[in-house]
Design a protein around this nucleic acid. Sequence first.
DNA 1: CAACAAAATGAACAGATTGTTCAATTTTGT
DNA 2: ACAAAATTGAACAATCTGTTCATTTTGTTG
Lengths: 199, 199
Amino acid sequence: MSIYKEKNRKTKELIQTSFIKILENKTFESITVGDIAKQAQINRGTFYLHFIDKFDLLDQIEQQLFADLGNRIDELQSNYSSTHTFEKEQEQLAATLFSAIKIQSPLLKIFLSDHGRAGFHLRFRAAFSEKVRLNLEKNESFKATLEVPMEYFLSFITSAFLGLIEQWVQNDLDKTPQEMTTLYINIISFIQQTNTKKV
Amino acid sequence: MSIYKEKNRKTKELIQTSFIKILENKTFESITVGDIAKQAQINRGTFYLHFIDKFDLLDQIEQQLFADLGNRIDELQSNYSSTHTFEKEQEQLAATLFSAIKIQSPLLKIFLSDHGRAGFHLRFRAAFSEKVRLNLEKNESFKATLEVPMEYFLSFITSAFLGLIEQWVQNDLDKTPQEMTTLYINIISFIQQTNTKKV
DNA sequence: CAACAAAATGAACAGATTGTTCAATTTTGT
DNA sequence: ACAAAATTGAACAATCTGTTCATTTTGTTG
């Protein structure tokens, strides 16, 4: 009974990995169920025993990706006490995000490229936007000093962060998560300098 | 002779506008050439007299969009002398971008959504990334003070800006371009404050 | 109006892909 | 050996694609 499930799971996984492999070289739009079956060396009908269609397949992989990232982030964050300063905590969250993303970078690189599916960058931002918001709102003076709508600030900062991630994965991880964190902090500091001079 | 061209142009435009109309309600993937012909009330064969396929159609609309935005930005920017401070110039560029984007917001809203085509946000960023870079590098002390690779800084700032644009068009332009510029400046100032406290 | 050119139509075509069905086969469990 | 679950292979109608070509409509010119 349990080996039946195991076999089922294994085939499903085979289909997923085969699909991702094709996705490296072909656009999602251009991939057919026949392509996937051929790559996985299974019957085309078998595909339909595991997924409704290729959209369902991609959806499930995407959901798994977000769930996995969420788990990794929560686990990494739980290792740190939150008695640090507000800024240290922001830095810590950044480090956690970069570490989690590194592990899933092969998939993220594809999903964020033009081989993926439209709107992924929005769903990805939404997936970790809530964690960022909670972290920011820990700080009491934050909401008091913030003069712009929270949704705009969140869009700004999560999108900025996504920009770094996109450059990073396109560069095939040319830096360590710690270096990326430093780079992030440096950019924030640099923006500070620019404006300080103005005033 | 020239009226033949005019008629040709008009039909091509009809196909484009009809397509965009469908795109508001359906995913690009799910739209067929038959759908477009039906909406435009033309023969399906006529479509192929003007475009290779639906991908070609979308590509051309995208190219036109970028060209139009580029022209608007250049024109708006040419109305201002560049004798202001570095920061004022950055603010001016932001105002210009928001103004140009407002005009093209209906199309941008669709293209940035999950009804569009994968990778649009990257191509969009690339389209105005160069203008931002040139504007930044005007300032001599900029390159001297910047401690991070230019490509990362550009990814960060253009992506952050895109985040504001995305929120703006999703909110159906709930603010004026000038208000968006102020909002942008406010966020930069806010980040400055946060870090100033730390030091 | 007549003659011509360009654009659009309608219909047909083969080819590819989709999602479903079902009997036969293989793999695994008891 | 027998039963259960998973997979296979083949066939099916349906849809969409891109192309072709004869015909019709629209616009131009003399």
